[in-house]
Design a protein around this nucleic acid. Structure first.
Length: 560
RNA sequence: GCGCCCGUAGCUCAGCGGAUCAGAGUAUUGGCCUCCGAAGCCAAGGGUCGUGGGUUCGAAUCCCGCCGGGCGCGCCA
């Protein structure tokens, strides 16, 4: 039994007996930072004081008295109640209630911390969604780490998650790419006479051209093999080959990061299947469009946009906004009632527009659909200077560079250990010079240390289930158990807020408390009972470290 | 100019549906390995939480102004 739930119920009962008129008040249990403030703290009295026009301390005292008077209180999870400060109710758990977390962790194993949703939802997380015009850069790496961690978090809450990658394989950028490869195939270089305008100058274009001329075959994760014709005048083959080649490169990089997608959605299919046309017809039918200056507009201002948007340009083609709306409509139609889009803040203006477009379809899509997680840009410093991220320049730091330099675990942990909306300065020199001191090693080291203790011990971990935990009474042991107990609610909150960085911080703290404990106390002592109890605690710590790291896509090594 | 986001210790950052919230890492300084892994631990110094108001018994947290930074503001994607 989760003591948090149990205690909330007790407080609810005490509240009903003390002030029945406020029995419906929300009961929030906090985890105090100070051990002296107990295992849980409740500010209920402070919250209610004004509403009831009562002194908060007296109210708290009354609630505390009511708690103590509840039948069966003595055998319940609470050992001691204190009223503190302006009116906090500090609750101290009985030893057996504290120890319960270890049984819970060992019993649940890899499932500890996970929840089974009362109503599991089918949720789609869309992320990366890079266009196939070049290698993935560090911004994509951040998005991959973030998106995958969010997906894992939602899965851990019992939902069924689809990871989707959307890409533009139809626009002007693809034409530029094709012409760039063609120019390279003809032996031109950037700057030469005849080098196309708006071409991609990166060296990788030369690689594609060479493989194209060699009539090589490439294959991307979601498609059939494509063999190059080798004819530099064959634009169709050039395009298919170049796109597939780059998609394969992106797939490879994402796999190096340990990120895999369940679905790929092609913009071209929206046109091929008539979904773009259908969306336009639907917008017109809903009466939210108007014609002006030989173009067709949508009144997005009716849905919070700061200006109306063009749907069909005066030349008859559609703006990119239309396939965007059509695409998001398919998400709704495919049954995803919850969708999380992970994007860079440079696209934040599309949030209002896409939502407005979905509203204007008049199909009952909720106004806040879909959810967005916007992350700030990643700036890369090297040699004390900023490396510009520009596909055109072809001199940017790629996902591959990053993984090669600092490894997959460090890349993922690092990129996800900051809030999405904070700017990220990735100092390559620092990451290289201090790769041994990267925070990820600290957490992994704690895991490896526990493993090492178990190797030394040589016993059967299964035998630790149900051992007497009474010897676990030291301050460090209590702190560790409390920390372990926080894990499930931490995951709940992190999932709710799409905030995987909270896991990284939690793991840091758990690892720190373990290292501190390890240095202060010997685990493998002679006393059998004490040894067994400490080993059980260590096993639980190891399990939670592993569970948390898994959610971030980071390995939990047994040796380092 | 308008919109969104961000200003917390020298540096990188948590905390932001108010109270028990002044925190972590790193850097600096001083300690700890005949003892389960020193990629570790213990200790010290370091911030009027950008700034000025407001709401509140109580504000880093909520509201407004200002300053500073980022990103957007196309019949580009």
């Amino acid at each position: 039994m989760d003591s948090r739930i149990e205690i909330t119920a007790l407080l609810r009962e005490a509240l009903a007996r003390t002030v029945p008129e406020a029995a419906d008040a929300e009961i929030v249990l906090e985890r105090p930072r100070e051990a002296a403030h107990g295992d849980f703290a409740c500010n209920l009295a402070l919250q209610l004081a004004r509403r009831l026009n009562k002194n908060p301390r007296q109210l708290a005292a009354a609630l505390a008295a009511a708690l103590r008077a509840l039948p069966g209180f003595g055998s319940g999870p609470i050992e001691r109640i204190e009223v503190a400060g302006p009116g906090f109710i500090n609750l101290h758990l009985a030893a057996r209630a504290r120890h319960a977390v270890i049984d819970a962790v060992l019993r649940s194993g890899a499932a500890y911390g996970r929840a089974s949703a009362a109503k599991p939802e089918r949720i789609q997380v869309e992320f990366v969604s890079a266009n196939p015009t070049g290698p993935l850069h560090v911004g994509h790496a951040r998005q991959a780490a973030l998106g995958d961690a969010i997906a894992k978090l939602l899965e851990a809450q019992g939902h069924v998650v689809t990871r989707e990658f959307y890409y533009n394989d139809a626009g002007v950028q693809i034409r530029n790419l094709t012409r760039s490869v063609q120019a390279r195939a003809r032996g031109l270089k950037p700057g030469d006479a005849g080098w196309p305008q708006d071409a991609y100058d990166g060296e990788y274009v030369q690689d594609i051209a060479q493989e194209f001329l060699a009539r090589n075959t490439v294959r991307a994760a979601d498609g059939a093999a494509v063999t190059a014709s080798g004819n530099a005048e064959d634009l169709e083959s050039l395009e298919r080959f170049a796109v597939t080649y780059l998609r394969r490169e992106q797939d490879t990089d994402l796999q190096r990061l340990g990120v895999n997608f369940d679905a790929y959605y092609l913009e071209s299919s929206l046109y091929a299947d008539g979904k773009v046309e259908a969306a336009v017809r639907r917008l017109i039918a809903s009466g939210k469009t108007f014609e002006a200056e030989r173009a067709l507009w949508l009144r997005t201002t009716e849905y919070g946009d700061d200006k109306d948007r063009v749907v069909r340009k005066s030349d008859g083609s559609y703006t990119y906004f239309v396939p965007d709306v059509a695409y998001h409509l398919t998400k709704w139609q495919r049954g995803f009632r919850r969708v999380v889009n992970v994007q860079g803040t440079d696209h934040h203006s599309t949030v209002t527009r896409v939502r407005a477009g979905l509203q204007a379809l008049d199909l009952g899509v909720p106004p806040g659909y879909p959810d967005y997680v916007l992350h700030s840009m990643v700036r890369v410093m090297r040699g004390g200077e900023e490396v510009k991220i520009s596909k055109r320049a072809g001199s940017y730091v790629t996902v591959r560079d990053l993984v090669d330099w600092v490894g997959r675990d460090a890349t993922r942990f690092f990129l996800v250990s900051r809030r999405a909306d904070t700017e990220f300065v990735f100092d390559i020199d620092l990451a290289l010079a201090q790769s041994e001191e990267n925070p990820v090693y600290y957490v992994q080291y704690a895991h490896a240390r526990v493993c090492s203790v178990f190797t030394q011990w040589g016993g059967d971990v299964q035998a630790l289930h149900g051992v007497t935990l009474a010897p676990l009474a030291g301050a460090r042991e209590l702190a560790l158990m409390q920390r372990l107990g926080e894990f499930p609610e931490l995951l709940r909150t992190a999932a709710q807020e799409f905030a995987p960085h909270a896991i990284a911080f939690y793991l840091r703290e758990l690892a720190a408390e373990f290292h501190s404990y390890y240095n202060a106390e010997r685990i493998l002592v002679d006393d059998e009972q004490v040894r067994a109890a400490r080993l059980a605690l260590c096993a639980a710590v190891r399990q939670v470290l592993a569970n948390g790291l898994a959610l971030l896509g980071v390995s939990a090594p047994e040796k380092m």
